[in-house]
Amino acid sequence: MSTPAGNEDPVVIEVSGLTKEFGRTVALQGASLTVARGEIVVLLGLSGSGKSTLLRHLDGLETPTAGSVRVLGQEVPRLTGRHLRALRSRMGFVFQQFDLVPSLTVLENVLTGALSELRGPRLGLWSYPRRLKLTALGHLDRVGLLDRAYQRADTLSGGQQQRVAIARALMQDPEILLADEPVASLDPESSEQVMSLIREIAMDAGLTVVCSLHQVDLALSWGDRIVGLRHGEVVLDTPAEGLSKAEVMEIYGRVATSTTELEAIEVELADAAADAAAETRLADGALRT
């Protein structure tokens, strides 16, 4: 099953009938998804639609209530301990809140991406082999932060921190890159930088990418394929090319039980724009006073 031949398999992710319940709330309801090697897929949906839960199942961070999750030829929920860690090490994960250790240097944060290939605990730069340090510096250079290598992670801006997190994921030399709302906590300019960085790296290394987003415009301009989620169900699965925002909205409108959901999508978009504008105004005001 998990023979090296599995690597040649064109299908790297195969989710079918995935259901996840947290107590009485249903996060995922029979969701299915198939991703081929090298695809760049966007999971699109409002908050609470099940995007994050789906991503976390791919990495084995959650156990499904029902259904199957096959990644790189292995049934994820069946794996435990060493085998699960081995599979996880083949997938990079980029989080919304970056999730760097604030008190460690940037370089050491990147190096933690290589922990799975090292045995035993590590603390301090000296405890990592020179070979890995060189690789980590190379990745930092790739994301344009080589000059920050020895600074504490919490001295960096949000956009820089997310780039460090990407470098940390690259440290795993992954086959798949999972990203959970990677730019939801960033300003528009940093978002642009981070998203194009992810895409360039994915193209260069031939990575398979599954990235969750809630902004329709960004999803359409960035992804190759759009998978829409609503209430834990897949309601849309189509190539991004030639798709317009109105069409996406229409599809959402067709599956929506009421017009309120469609409105919610529009309202969320408008809110995001208004928030950004308000923040800019606030920042301007703060500067002036």
Binding site: M91, D99, T112, Q172
Partner: peptide, 9 residues
């Protein structure tokens, strides 16, 4: 969680 996701023990 990030370290767990990267396959750390």
């Amino acid at each position: 969680r990030a370290i767990r996701a990267a396959g750390g023990s």
